[in-house]
Amino acid sequence: MLVDSHCHLDYPEFADLADVVRRAEAAGVGAMLTIGTELSRFPAVLAVAEAQPNIYCTVGVHPHEAGKGEMVQLDELLRLADHPKVVGFGETGLDYFYERSPRAQQQKSFRIHIEAARRLQLPLIVHTRDADDDTMAILKDEMKQGAFPGLIHCFSASAEFATEAVELGFYISISGIVTFNKAQNVRDAIKDVPLERFLVETDAPYLAPIPFRGKPNEPAYTRYTAAKLAEIKGVSEDEIETVTTDNFYRLFTKAPRPAEGF
């Protein structure tokens, strides 16, 4: 089976969760990770995860939300992560493209999430856009204070960034962007990333892969991203399916691995 390692199933596009799950299962996607973006939305995220045995979730504050209201507190992240369905922290990180929150607030929130990941040794889901230098600087600085697991979500950075992330022990998660005609830079950047460091994701309902670009994305479409990754790496789709799923459960150690999907 495949695992969609990043989607947003609490969004209104997925009101009929049972149908989403059925289509995913038919496409060979046997598990999904639905991602927290605001603490105020966390109950809805958790409810989605609790509704299906092979949906997991994370808790966190997206960089867009980092400057809204009170700063996220470490104790609250740790408390919410005590739930068995919560398997990681995020998404967090830096977004200097939209800058919907002040940079200083984004950076502070990012470091708080990192400390939570370090304390519990649960993976950190990192969002970085137009902020790769600061993102990597913070990751390296924090890693000196104690190791923590994590991944770069929706990878769209440089080959150098990918190499540095892998050297830190991070995984690289590939989205539908890799199928876009104008994304040759992304395809080039991941050519030398070892297979044992890849995950695949949709970021649904965003970034639908070709041939669905422009339409709402959904977990069933993970297979199209996996197929493109297989082409880039020169291996079979079956190998990508096996490797990326093994990688997911190696990273997300708190997620129980299903025997046969849903």
Rank of each mutant, 00 (worst) to 15 (best):
Ala204Phe: 01
Lys68His: 15
Leu33Arg: 08
Leu199Lys: 05
Leu195Gly: 06
Glu201Phe: 10
Ile240Asp: 13
Lys215Ala: 13
Gln73Glu: 15
Asp82Pro: 01
Pro149Met: 00
Gly93Tyr: 08
Asn217Met: 08
Ala157Asn: 14
Glu218Cys: 00
Ala226Cys: 11
Leu78Lys: 13
Val87Phe: 09
Glu164Cys: 02
Leu9Val: 07
Glu196Tyr: 12
Gly69Leu: 09
Glu237Val: 09
Met136Ser: 08
Leu77Arg: 05
Met143Tyr: 13
Val21Met: 11
Tyr11Pro: 03
Leu78Met: 09
Gly88Gln: 08
Leu151Phe: 07
Tyr171Pro: 09
Gln184Met: 11
Pro258Gly: 06
Ala165Pro: 04
Gly169Leu: 07
Lys191Ala: 14
Pro63Leu: 03
Ala18Ile: 01
Asn185Lys: 15
Leu46Ala: 13
Leu151Glu: 11
Ser101His: 04
Leu17Cys: 03
Phe89Asn: 07
Arg111Asn: 02
Ala230His: 03
Lys140Arg: 15
Phe148Arg: 01
Gln105Ile: 02
Ser109Asp: 01
Ile112Pro: 12
Glu142Ala: 14
Phe161Leu: 15
Leu120Ala: 14
Gly234Ala: 08
Asp133Leu: 10
Arg119Glu: 15
Gly67Glu: 12
Gln106Leu: 09
Lys191Gly: 06
Leu78Gln: 08
Leu80Gly: 06
Pro194Cys: 09
Leu33Ser: 04
Glu201Leu: 07
Phe155Trp: 13
His113Arg: 09
Leu46Asn: 12
Thr37Glu: 05
Ile114Asp: 03
Lys140Pro: 05
Glu91Gly: 12
Thr179Val: 08
Tyr249Ala: 05
Pro219Met: 06
Ala24Pro: 01
Ser175Leu: 01
Asp82Cys: 12
Lys228Asp: 11
Glu160Met: 03
Asp82Leu: 12
Thr245Tyr: 03
Asn181Tyr: 04
Val200Arg: 07
Ser173His: 00
Gln52Asn: 12
Pro256Gln: 13
Gly176Ala: 12
Phe148Gly: 08
Pro256Leu: 08
Leu124Lys: 00
Lys254Asp: 09
Ala15Pro: 02
Ala116Lys: 04
Leu122Cys: 00
Pro123Gln: 08
Pro258Ile: 02
Glu99Met: 12
Val235Thr: 11
